[in-house]
Design a protein around this nucleic acid. Structure first.
Lengths: 235, 235
DNA sequence: AGCCGCAATCTTGTCGACAAATAATATGCA
DNA sequence: TGCATATTATTTGTCGACAAGATTGCGGCT
């Protein structure tokens, strides 16, 4: 007989990749709001879903908590971190500054292979815009700016910028409706201008374009959520 | 009989604090170079030392790895991250910018309780200088600037700045000899000037002082290790 | 003697189970 | 009926053990 379910032949998972697997997947689901802010995270449920023990799941959760993507109350439940709309001004301050800095550094330190990578991301972004795929637009836009940051070669700025871009993905996923029709092409054009400045090594222009690009996003979102005071550093 | 070691009555550790305990301690030991860069980290050894299972130790290590304080090769050994002297220019760029930004934001957003905290840290720093305690000087100096960042109330900048100050603690721990005699009092004075500007709400001065303070540190360390290009954002 | 391959050992990643802490439910009393 | 308390249940933190990879040491071969 043995009409019960088969003993599930070991899925032949490679050793040492379990945590990374669930980390990557959970991260994407959080950033794309498949898991909306406040969603409860159940370890055993994830363990069943990924067909592994709780240990690698917990490792992934610890890493996600370290990046501020999930919040964990000690001895109590853990859930997806919620983005608080009251503190959006600090977010925009940091995002704008990172746009400026990474643009400037990229113009100074870029190498041929960096430009290749940046152009590849821009192509993906452009394709997503053409396809009206909002989710892909958001993800590829973040990847584009991350590529610029990479060209700047400052790991400290890069890690902060990555975190900000992650948060931005969640924000945009909430509000992308307002971008649907008119903004995308403008973004594509601004991206092209940034690439040109970076390729020319024009640090000042790259910084200015980065700032303007950030302002575009900020004013767009601020129409929906109110932030008050803005950082104005050495304007 | 029973001349062997007693069965070690359970050390009555509280639940859920195991990981935090070893995390805090390991972190301090890494930042104070008690564990120098490159030191191998042995899980079982730590498990014996803290008298707990490997599970909470691994959780602490994952968190430390997330902050870049330890490097872990998959399926191979894990060791204390080494600070590379080739990439010190990016570090100084980021540090200088964060000094400026946090100073400016603190001048804008400070509250009475923030000034209390800042002054308390400054007092500790001053005491460490008077006592010629290099290790305490380094730690309290970092705490002073972290307090300023707190007053700025931008969690994104704060997390990056904390990471930079951590790295700085390790650098300074390596080179503090050059600071022994002449620099400390200057730092104390500059700190006082920064406090005054922050209390007065003078954002521009606070930023300028922060930049100057950072430059002091940079030129001092650059006498020892060579970095070349510097970020010059909207001077 | 030097190099290659095999065996033994060590370290890490994963697992299942247990225990503590909290949340949920039921029970007793006013 | 409503509230306080006790009991159950769920969930997290911890543990000891096992197995896969990797490292080291040994032995054999050219």
């Amino acid at each position: 007989m043995n009409a019960t379910k088969t003993p599930s032949p070991p899925p032949e998972r490679k050793r040492g990749l379990g945590a990374r697997l669930v980390y990557d997947l959970l991260r994407d689901e959080i950033l794309d709001l498949v898991l909306p802010p406040g969603s409860p995270i159940d370890e055993v449920q994830l363990a069943e879903r990924f067909e592994m023990s709780r240990t690698p799941i917990r490792e992934a959760l610890v890493r996600l908590a370290g990046e501020g993507l999930i919040a964990t109350l000690p001895n109590r439940s853990t859930m997806v971190a919620n983005l608080d709309f009251l503190n959006m001004a600090p977010f925009f301050d940091a995002l704008t500054l990172m746009y400026r800095v990474t643009g400037q550094l990229a113009a100074r330190n870029r190498r041929p292979e960096d430009l290749e990578a940046i152009r590849a991301r821009q192509a993906e972004f452009s394709a997503a815009v053409a396809a009206q795929d909002a989710l892909a637009m958001i993800a590829t836009n973040a990847a584009f700016h991350a590529a610029i940051a990479e060209a700047g070669r400052n790991p400290y700025f890069n890690s902060l910028f990555s975190r900000l871009l992650d948060e931005g993905r969640r924000f945009l996923r909430l509000y992308y409706q307002s971008f649907e029709d008119r903004l995308p092409q403008r973004f594509v054009d601004e991206h092209e201008a940034m690439i040109a400045a970076i390729e020319a090594g024009d640090a000042e222009t790259a910084e200015r374009l980065g700032k303007a690009h950030a302002e575009q996003i900020v004013v767009q979102i601020r129409k929906l959520v109110i932030g008050e005071q803005r950082l104005d550093i050495a304007l």
